[in-house]
Design a protein around this nucleic acid. Sequence first.
DNA 1: TATGATATTTTTGGTCGACCAAAGATGACT
DNA 2: AGTCATCTTTGGTCGACCAAAAATATCATA
Lengths: 259, 259
Amino acid sequence: MTILTPNITDGLLDTYNSEGIKQMAADGTATNIASELASDVHSGLLRPGDMFPSERNLCERFGVGRSIVRDGMTILHGMGLADHTKGTRPRVAIPTLSRVMLGASDAAQYFFKDNEGRAHLQQARLFLETSMVQYAVQNASNAQIAKMVGAVEECDANLDNIASFRNADVKFHHALAEVPGNPIFVALHETFVDRLMKRAPIKDNHLAHNQISNEGHKEIVSAILAKDTDAAVRSLTEHLVRNNETFLHRSLTNKIVKT
Amino acid sequence: MTILTPNITDGLLDTYNSEGIKQMAADGTATNIASELASDVHSGLLRPGDMFPSERNLCERFGVGRSIVRDGMTILHGMGLADHTKGTRPRVAIPTLSRVMLGASDAAQYFFKDNEGRAHLQQARLFLETSMVQYAVQNASNAQIAKMVGAVEECDANLDNIASFRNADVKFHHALAEVPGNPIFVALHETFVDRLMKRAPIKDNHLAHNQISNEGHKEIVSAILAKDTDAAVRSLTEHLVRNNETFLHRSLTNKIVKT
DNA sequence: TATGATATTTTTGGTCGACCAAAGATGACT
DNA sequence: AGTCATCTTTGGTCGACCAAAAATATCATA
């Protein structure tokens, strides 16, 4: 394993060429089949919504039995490129970073279920959104700011509706993640933050909490409009830290609220 | 699908309880088998290095045929929890965020192979490391700074050795990602940045390039020592943007250097 | 004849048990 | 106690079987 041809230990895919993309030697391994199909999807040879070639067809193409092909399809599904819903014939999924990350999310959730892991996740989120807000102060377009304002209004209109408020809350932070126009940030946000938010425990006295929370949103937008980076970061940090602290506090005082 | 029990579309794992962890109804689906084994690994019931129960054993336990169990093991491997190397009997891997992300990396590489995707990745890296450096200015311990200095010295000692310099270069940025002590940052760095760096094309005149690059490292550390956030961020940005620009420029002028 | 519904055949994914080579365990023999 | 032969267990692969879905053919009716 040299440095220039980095064969990272134990990835699902094993050999890379100088471009970093899997070489397509048609060896009949499951990983190879998966990566070849993946290439076809990303290259547009297979279009989202299409059906994959039938398994028997792939058997013939790779010269292996159906078990191998089937394994390859499982891997492909894990990569978020195959849509195996409800017994229907698998179809090509839209290749999206968010979908890809979803697979990682399934595996990563275990790291975030205890308080320590949750705190790490919260910190990562704080760092991510801090970067977003700093960027937004400098570069957010009026349309993007308007989208955030829209979410704030939606929050205000649903202060007493837990589900709807959360929806709007997520929408606000999602709009923030969209500002740089970088799909990586959106994917990270959807994969980790959105799920985290939607799964958060319910606060007692949620009306008051929601009011305070949305005041935080307003402060953030105001600071962005005023192009005041420090104020924006400060408001965001307060907004996020407060939620995390109330969670920890609730855990300490053992006030379990039924979900 | 309600908001409070978020059943995100099409994840590999399907049903969640209020804790967000998969419910363990012993239905004989591959995903269930995978998640149950995953639970056993994360709970410590299966220790890293152990062998998994034999496939026939699992067949009996879940009341299904070996194909299903085998599918479950494939999924588990995709989650980075099973070690299927070289035909030996699969063993329990150390559950690590980095390993988990490795699976996502295989699927995500396709999004980063063109110039646009690469630019997005570079931006994400810039944002991540900016956060790290800001945090480091405030909180880095002497030991952590010493580690960075060590990497800088190693860079200096290997200015003319492409592989060794890259190693030391990676080490420097890795040390930066370690400062907050948050495994998420380390995992993100190892998964995306390390691979990106090790795979980067070779510059012509690498000696001069390496010198300039390491000067950047020195500026960054100096700014951290001086607790000068602005200077640290500025140095880091210059350091990273320069690499990206030379890459794009090289691409435009078509000066392909053999790898 | 054209058209729509219905019956039939084919194809497809899902599941299973059987076979194989190799690795590991067991026992015999020196 | 050590070495070698034998046997058991294990993962890897394959083909066969099944139910459901799709495609095709059939036929009654306007």
